[in-house]
Design a protein around this nucleic acid. Sequence first.
DNA 1: ATGTTTCCACCTAGGTGAAAACTT
DNA 2: AAGTTTTCACCTAGGTGGAAACAT
Lengths: 210, 210
Amino acid sequence: SVYPRADATPIHLDLQDTELWSRFEALSTEMILTKGGRRMFPVLRVAVRGLDPETLYDFKLDFAPCDNFRWRYVTGQWQTNGKQDITNLNQDRRYGVTVKGEPYSHPKSPNYGRFWMSDVVEFKNVKLTNRPNPVKDDHIILNSLHKYKPRIHILQSVSNGQPNVLLETFTFPLTSFIAVTAYQNEEITALKIRHNPFAKAFQEPRDRTD
Amino acid sequence: SVYPRADATPIHLDLQDTELWSRFEALSTEMILTKGGRRMFPVLRVAVRGLDPETLYDFKLDFAPCDNFRWRYVTGQWQTNGKQDITNLNQDRRYGVTVKGEPYSHPKSPNYGRFWMSDVVEFKNVKLTNRPNPVKDDHIILNSLHKYKPRIHILQSVSNGQPNVLLETFTFPLTSFIAVTAYQNEEITALKIRHNPFAKAFQEPRDRTD
DNA sequence: ATGTTTCCACCTAGGTGAAAACTT
DNA sequence: AAGTTTTCACCTAGGTGGAAACAT
């Protein structure tokens, strides 16, 4: 049995770190794919409002293709190949156009609205890969040199053998990116190194004004 | 509304690593308390059977006092002080005799029976402390030189504002221990160093027969 | 030519018991 | 004397981009 929403408050997700995302977006964000799976940086983080505190939800993440092109980086610019490439798309009954495989389920799913709203929800452990059949369920398969936008799906968790109910899907245009196996734009590399603590080995000392 | 159990299958928890626990138990197990919280070693791990796959459960862990004594280690033996010490006990309406504070909630709670039964449930991140008011909710307060036995509580997660229903409590006598701020029995220290990978710095090379 | 894979040094993050300092 | 607290070197575990090797 599905719990009806207690009220008509709209569900609202506030993307965090918008200033950082904007700096990447201004350069065209790139995300690395590896066989073993690579985390996203920046991490997709959202503050949540408008859930029923006592209802159970799943949070899921996937990546919708922004277009049907293959992209290339030439003379400092991202360009499309000109021709469409639809071999990597498929249609999912539940979520619409997306990529192969299941969406990534936030590891705290299922949980109550009260929990999801109590702190920023972050997808820091999802890993992007180009391996066709990843071993772990925290891996999402993407195609290199294709452009994607992250989507968060909120489902009402009903169980009792019934499929969960998709309540709403949120997309975050500011966080769209081109998947790559090696960084193309060296300004992107520099921005990753500057802000990702795990890349500290590559930081050069910098003055305090930036 | 509470889901009735689908059948009368008894819930069953199988303690894992019983051989290792036995070796500690034979020496009287000790667990370290620190201000910042210390993990247990060995880790409490159980295989679960008999849950309804589609019903939602919480798994909780706490520590029941084995007695009302304060213990001391003299001339290679653990002895009671002789006098009772009841200042550190209190009574909890839901769980019976236990220690101060809330039980530790397994971080995957709430989840479906199907999930809990799909793999061994391990409480590797719970931390034992003697700090009166721990900052984190993964800390459990114990009293040094007192003896405890771990208990796992299985609750049916109902939410909708109602309190969860305690279905059953399991105790694991083989895993009982005396809480200490420094190891007393050097054979316990040696056994910890031999089997805990984080203590590898203190391992001496040993032959392959043990 | 273009794109991918592997291996690596160098980090983050945090779990060990030892030993010395401290408390009562 | 007995027990606690702090600091530390040394680990586990795993996330970075670079660079060279590899593939097509």
